[in-house]
């Protein structure tokens, strides 16, 4: 399998002086479900956001599907972003709009402004959007406003929106951190399915080791902006766990 993401010596220093990423080197192969573990502030979110340049890296190289995203500008950058879906902890949907409209916004990278203004009239796109909603178990929810949906349903709408992009990679930034454990598992199940059936590479930051073991094919541990662990979920024993989370940490089982 070829590398779909290649990160070389990636640094991020925030204007306040915080050194969030200290020379990250990481290659992710096509089809991997890569889990990022680490404490809050270890650099997981910064790393994910550097990958589609929602945050500008300070230095280093990132290749996505063979293309240099750091050098990309304007139209080129948008075309690369189109291949990268993103899912957020807070779902980041437009709350006073319907599920369908929110899902359709996933197609924006493919349309011009004028066409996108009339996108609810585009039968083909609406059809695909409805299919995607159905895929995440939200058939018949297309007219519901987002603010009337539960957290788990909202995250599934967000997944459907990402699917509109036909992404090769999905970046998931703590997608289940604001959900209860049962709902968290159901959302992870959909991501797992996309990984298996659609061969979409997924990089997902998580807090629950149990979910990492269940869905991840690979685990990368971050601590203070550096990679401290890289292996399979099975390899994480008590000792490794403490390496990632610090000496005082105890694993809490969530089922």
């Amino acid at each position: 399998m070829k590398n779909i993401i290649e990160i070389n010596n990636l640094h991020k220093v925030y204007t306040g002086g915080t050194h969030a990423l200290k020379g990250i080197n990481l290659n992710v192969k096509e089809g991997e479900f890569c889990i990022l573990l680490g404490l809050s502030g270890s650099g997981k979110t910064t790393l994910l956001r550097c990958l589609n340049r929602l945050i500008e890296p300070t230095s280093g190289k990132i290749q996505i599907d063979g293309e240099d995203i750091i050098a990309a500008k304007g139209q080129k950058l948008r075309l690369i972003r189109r291949k990268i879906g993103m899912i957020f902890q807070q779902f980041n949907l437009i709350k006073n709009m319907s599920s369908l409209t929110n899902v359709l916004t996933g197609k924006l990278g493919y349309t011009s402004l004028l066409n996108s203004l009339a996108f609810s009239k585009n039968k083909k796109d609406v059809e695909i959007a409805l299919e995607n909603l159905q895929r995440v178990g939200l058939k018949d929810f297309d007219e519901n406003k987002i603010k009337n949906l539960s957290g788990g349903q909202q995250q599934r709408v967000a997944i459907a929106r990402t699917l509109m992009q036909k992404p090769k990679v999905i970046l998931a930034d703590e997608p289940v951190a604001s959900l209860d454990p049962a709902t968290a598992d159901s959302v992870m199940k959909y991501l797992g399915e996309l990984n298996k059936n659609d061969k979409i590479t997924i990089i997902c930051s998580l807090h629950f080791l149990s979910l990492a073991r269940k869905y991840g094919t690979r685990v990368v541990g971050l601590k203070d902006g550096e990679i401290v662990f890289d292996g399979t979920p099975r390899e994480i024993d008590k000792k490794r766990f403490k390496e990632i989370y610090g000496e005082d940490a105890e694993e809490v089982e969530i089922r």
Binding site: R81, R82, N92, T105, L108, G109, L113, Q165
Partner: peptide, 23 residues
Amino acid sequence: GPVEAIKATGANTLQIWVFGVVP
């Protein structure tokens, strides 16, 4: 949040304003 999400789909600045900010 929604502004970032729409930016991440590859939308251009005007699309981000129209779909992320205006609603």
